[in-house]
Simulated scan of single mutants.
Amino acid sequence: MGNDGVPFEIELTWNRGRVEPYENGGKDTHIAFVVDDFDAAHELHEKMGCIIRENPRMALYFIADPEGQWIEILPAR
């Protein structure tokens, strides 16, 4: 979801078949950033040792902040 007033979007996800309650702040709840140079960002995060999950098929990966909150990194398309 988004609007014409700001360049930000919010995505709501429904995990079909999930029966257990969602835990607020769990891995389903995270922020994401689109980066202009995905390869350079990946290289930096790899050097920092903060990449916690990668999905090359979907061209994205996750890093964790110091408190363990997941942050999704996506290439500009």
Rank of each mutant, 00 (worst) to 15 (best):
I73W: 00
N15V: 12
E9Y: 11
Q69S: 08
L74H: 08
I10Y: 10
H45K: 07
V19D: 14
E20M: 10
P75W: 01
C50P: 02
I71T: 07
A64E: 13
K47Y: 00
F33E: 08
A40K: 12
A40Y: 05
R18F: 06
W14M: 09
P66D: 07
K27T: 06
D4F: 12
G17I: 00
L12P: 03
L12F: 13
D4N: 15
A41C: 13
G49D: 00
G2P: 02
E11W: 11
F62T: 01
P21D: 07
E11R: 11
I52F: 00
K27N: 12
M58D: 06
V19E: 15
W14A: 11
I51K: 00
D4H: 14
A32I: 03
P66K: 06
E23H: 14
V6F: 13
I31H: 09
R53M: 08
T13E: 13
I71W: 05
Y22C: 12
D65Q: 09
I73K: 08
E11M: 14
A32R: 05
G25E: 00
P21W: 04
G49M: 00
E23Q: 15
T13N: 13
V34Y: 08
F8G: 07
R57Y: 07
P21H: 04
A40R: 14
E11G: 09
K47F: 03
C50L: 05
P21A: 12
E54Q: 11
T29H: 13
V34P: 01
D65S: 09
R16W: 12
D28T: 10
I71C: 06
W70Y: 08
I52G: 02
T29V: 11
G26R: 09
P7L: 04
V19C: 08
P56W: 01
E67V: 08
G49Q: 03
W70F: 06
A64R: 04
F38L: 01
E43S: 06
L44D: 05
E23K: 15
L12Y: 11
